[in-house]
Nucleic acid binder design. Structure first.
Lengths: 189, 189
DNA sequence: GGAACTAGCCTAACACCATTAGGCAAACCA
DNA sequence: TGGTTTGCCTAATGGTGTTAGGCTAGTTCC
């Protein structure tokens, strides 16, 4: 009887793949075990419990997304950077809906601090260097950008835009134009 | 043995309350049954299954939120209306996190059409009457507004803004200023 | 090469949840 | 009051999460 070679990492990747394939909410310890042809209980030497597995998937996704965003940003500034960031973000969410969903669980503060979350924040701030905003406007702008991206992607995914015929891609592009315009003319206090 | 007096409506309300109290993902058929002091199986004369119960909670929440937004909008126009809408939306999400989470499930098209979702869309469009936008800009603007609200609320709830000290309320107000400003000066194609 | 050890996967067992089938009694209705 | 409906129950099945303890494949050390 040869061994399956389970590790926390392999389980995490398998869970992430499963999430993209069958939906995040259907990812279960049993389903992951099945994928490796082992019994459920065997996973518990590698992960603490189901929640632990979910957290690992979230961290994986956060890190993958940060890498892609970083790559997209390289060598760009201003609106170019804004659009590259936004498109990388949205593309990741579309390619990996399950991982994107996993990212939404709330991590406890120390896990969050050790995650790629701070890298996201840092990169978002980097974009704003092209827009001459100082604190606290910068923080407000970061929050608005992040909200818009996340809100758009998440409404798009859940079919919130289906009822209106207008192309979602076109609307997205205009929203980015609007964001750019507002960052260039951030309303004075 | 007196009867518990179950109905689909009472079960839905109880499930919604539970969602706000213990979190949407912990709402289970068993937990609802427990709350009424009846056996799990007894619920199945009133609801088809767990998914049916979830859909009912989502519809309840959509309808409650639409009512509150409608009340907030009454007699307002322009930026006043925008801010009233946004604040009603955010307040509902904070008061009823479980119901807000329930609203995010995707309804099948005909259920969605019969839900309060279209009322939301209509009210959002009504706000834009104060801003002289014609199609397709109007659709794009509706999508951007909705994304911003949803994105903000959902990031705030999941602790996405915790790392930066700036007050979330203040940032929110500035984001609404920014939205207003952009609606007044929607960038030309 | 064999003995001792480690670690990886297994079986067994339990609790909770979702769901279906069929029974019995309370509530209503004639 | 007797019959019918309907509401909740018991019983049973299957999936999932989790713990405890066992067996053996692979490694280490003489």
């Amino acid at each position: 009887m040869t061994r399956a070679g389970l590790t926390a990492e392999r389980l995490t990747v398998a869970a992430a793949e499963l999430a993209d394939e069958i939906g995040y909410e259907n990812v279960t310890v049993s389903a992951v075990a099945r994928r490796f042809g082992v019994k459920d209980a065997s996973l518990y030497s590698h992960i603490r419990n189901a929640q632990d597995l979910r957290v690992r998937v979230a961290l994986l996704a956060l890190s993958e997304l940060a890498d892609r965003v970083a790559a997209a940003l390289a060598g760009r500034a201003g609106k170019d950077a804004l659009v590259a960031f936004a498109n990388a973000y949205r593309a990741y969410a579309k390619e990996h809906p399950g991982r994107y969903a996993a990212m939404q669980i709330d991590l406890d503060p120390e896990t969050a601090a050790a995650s790629a979350g701070p890298r996201h924040a840092e990169m978002t701030r980097a974009i704003l260097r092209g827009y001459q905003l100082s604190e606290p406007d910068q923080t407000d702008a970061v929050r608005m950008m992040h909200s818009t991206f996340h809100g758009y992607v998440s409404l798009e995914r859940s079919g919130g835009f289906r009822h209106t015929p207008r192309e979602v891609d076109a609307s997205w592009a205009r929203s980015l134009d609007a964001l750019d315009s507002i960052l260039r003319n951030w309303p004075p206090q």
